[in-house]
Design a protein around this nucleic acid. Structure first.
Lengths: 215, 215
DNA sequence: AAAAAACTGAACTGTGCAGTTTATATGTCA
DNA sequence: TGACATATAAACTGCACAGTTCAGTTTTTT
């Protein structure tokens, strides 16, 4: 989370421990992951594990912190600001969808929700290191595009949130509720294009707006 | 779930047990809920509890089944098919938002996600008794409205999913990640109206379409 | 009012797991 | 070589909790 070096000791096997913990925590959540399993998965003795991390909670938080950083990196190059709206938005939609459909996105999301009671901070940290950052970038892009006359938006925050949600159509709830867990490129394209079409129908102007008929 | 009467014995305190279990399970999930807590919350002895339900898992599934039924009832009168699109959709949006923002909606969602690994069926059952039903009703309404010339939609499934997602804008992720947990009527209206405006901008025709300027 | 069924509380068993301890091994620097 | 840090496996402690048992009480049925 926001803390940096903390009390975590240095040493040869630290990375091993973190990787093992990551694997097991993301797969089984906090309660579902036993420390013995983590030690085994990390090829490390339990005693060694406990020499790095005083208890299970702190190990979990360390993993969560790392995952949030990872997520920040992933959201970095999400929107290319120079393309025209349709291209820029299509690319952004595609990237957003592939992120939350990926095993990484799914697992992190599941753990956040599942552990919301035990680790209330976790959800917030995740939100800020992911969704909130994407939103800022979308808004920044909107403002550029508005000044070019390519978009017309009164409430940029709402527009950004709507776009993000449009990208989840169909896929997200099927994913979350385990109805379907892998999606073809065609399925992703359908949602991405649908999101862009709908978004531009509302917020586009003139020649860069929706070409609904072409579909 | 789909099973009906099963092996569950009758008796005075059955409802008490189920209500206690409901309270505790929805608040703490499966692992987080201890059978002693449930018995206490139900004002019932542990022995009584076990005389109704052979084990914790079955009790949990029984509660989940009941919640799915409850959800089905809640989604029943969601869309009034006779109003014009703007009114019908605004009402639908308002109801959908209030449902998933409610403690009920939040808890059920959280438990589904958290227990997805332990109870893979649960997510699917939930999805079918809630989101999927709402989608069917939306599509039915769309078809009526299309035949009246009020809407123009190529892919009704996509449109329904998009509408549902638009209703989640902003609210949903804040809720799920614990950034914010109560929302004013004004906040809800903003999202509901935004969803309808965007939806009609894409799928509306003629005079019932978006009055974006009036906002 | 007597018999049957449902319920209670409290003590008990067994298990899984977080965290500790110990005795031993390996590697590194002087 | 020896001193010190780091790692290991395995046994151990303590606790929380699912599920059982049972002697005794309350409620329902006839």
């Amino acid at each position: 989370m926001n803390i940096q070096n903390d009390t975590v000791k240095q040493g040869r096997k630290l990375q091993q421990v973190l990787e093992g913990a990551r694997t097991v925590f993301l797969q089984h959540g906090f309660e579902g992951a036993s420390v013995d399993d983590i030690a085994k998965s990390a090829n490390v003795s339990k005693a060694t594990l406990y020499s790095y991390f005083p208890d299970k909670r702190i190990l979990f938080m360390e993993v969560a912190k790392a995952e949030c950083l990872r997520q920040e990196e992933m959201t970095d190059e999400m929107i290319g600001a120079n393309a025209n709206p349709r291209d820029a938005l299509t690319t952004a939609a595609d990237r957003m969808i592939r992120l939350f459909v990926s095993p990484f996105g799914r697992n992190v999301f599941r753990v956040c929700v599942a552990e919301a009671e035990r680790f209330p901070e976790l959800g917030r940290e995740f939100w800020e290191s992911g969704p909130a950052r994407v939103r800022s970038k979308m808004i920044a892009y909107f403002n550029i595009s508005i000044s070019r006359g390519e978009l017309k938006i009164e409430d940029c925050e709402l527009a950004a949130d709507q776009f993000a949600e449009l990208c989840k159509a169909d896929l997200f709830s099927k994913l979350v509720f385990g109805v379907q867990d892998t999606f073809s490129d065609a399925e992703i394209d359908r949602i991405a294009n649908g999101a862009v079409d709908t978004f531009l129908a509302r917020y586009g102007t003139g020649r860069h707006a929706v070409n609904q008929a072409a579909e």
